[in-house]
Design a protein around this nucleic acid. Structure first.
Lengths: 194, 194
DNA sequence: TTATTAATCAGACAATCGTCTGAATTAATA
DNA sequence: TATTAATTCAGACGATTGTCTGATTAATAA
């Protein structure tokens, strides 16, 4: 069978992924994606029937990326609490993007959460994936079995908040500082048994 | 002079304010505002030449509202630290709106921060207004003169984060819990001199 | 080679966007 | 009352939106 198409499809998803992040979902048009990908607009319908379908595939791809990232951390042979620290520290690598465009997940949920609830629900899965992983680490540490959900949600809150403010102020150093504070909080919290 | 117009103008701003919050700026059309306000589209040009101009006036009105709110707190004859607690506690009154539509300021900054930087800069002034007020309260308390900016920014981070997550999960109780945690943190932090 | 499927691509489609006109209407001023 | 200015309002404007044809080319299978 003829399957050059899968490469083209992946190329479209990657292009759309960046544009959705940099411009927002509703502010990114079919024409934008087509031009940016170097693929004529008429060719799109062969791969995706609607813009929503593109976003759904973008989300699936993001989920895969994060799952890979989390799996890589698990293979590092760290203690659960150190896995959490590792994950959060690694976010600092994205500080430039966060300060310029916000969180790729949070910003799209904020956008879609107003009027496009079906798409929002799908995007939300990425946040849940991360929070569940954090929660699982807290449980594995043995010290926070009943508070794992609260603790992991609190981390999500502070990460999202740090990104929103860093984006609003266009100040990446403020993101770094808030993350460092969060790491200190974890050091204290992780040493307290419940 | 004939000035029924000022009432109409205010009515347009109020209508647009709600729609921008509930639908987002770019997802709200002139037609939406016109229909929702019960004013023919052609009449708009008499008051606003562009949609941007409407947003600018919406922001000005929001700034006034928040300034009034902060002034009212100042008149309550509370200690600075209690003024901060009062302001943060009062946010819980908006939990339903936060869970359904996110933060009216944060969500519009996130949206405009991607491609409409001039409008974002104006929206950002609302966040700065609040943070400066918080910072001023910390300084007046006498205990946190050099760390007032860091402390106030941290509060902004946690408020914005709590709203983003409450909105993502459509869970207002999670907002309340995070705010209560924040209040506890302030109790501890405010009692520590620097 | 022939038949079949996969992929490309120019451009049409109705609907909607933000913007703008110009005439009609209303109210205040002279 | 006559004049002037403020306000109303139906609808046109070009540009852009997301969606969709249908003809064409490229690659595989029979």
């Amino acid at each position: 069978m003829y399957n050059k198409g899968t490469a083209t499809r992946t190329h479209i998803i990657n292009t759309a992924n960046n544009l959705f992040y940099h411009q927002g979902f509703n502010q990114t048009s079919f024409t934008d994606i087509a031009q940016s990908a170097g693929i004529p607009k008429g060719n799109f319908y062969h791969y995706f029937k609607t813009k929503e379908e593109i976003l759904e595939d973008v989300i699936q791809q993001r989920i895969k990326n994060i799952e890979n990232q989390l799996n890589n951390i698990e293979e590092l042979n760290l203690q659960p609490a150190d896995r959490i620290r590792f994950f959060i520290s690694a976010l600092k690598n994205n500080k430039n993007g966060f300060a310029q465009y916000g969180c790729p997940v949070g910003s799209i949920i904020t956008e879609l959460g107003k009027t496009q609830l079906a798409l929002k629900t799908k995007s939300k899965m990425i946040l849940e994936l991360i929070q569940n992983w954090l929660s699982s680490q807290f449980q594995q540490s043995g010290k926070h079995k009943t508070t794992a959900n609260t603790l992991s949600r609190h981390i999500m809150v502070r990460i999202q908040g740090a990104i929103v403010i860093a984006h609003a102020y266009e100040d990446k150093s403020c993101f770094t500082e808030e993350i460092n504070q969060l790491l200190e909080w974890i050091d204290k919290e992780a040493s307290n048994a419940e």
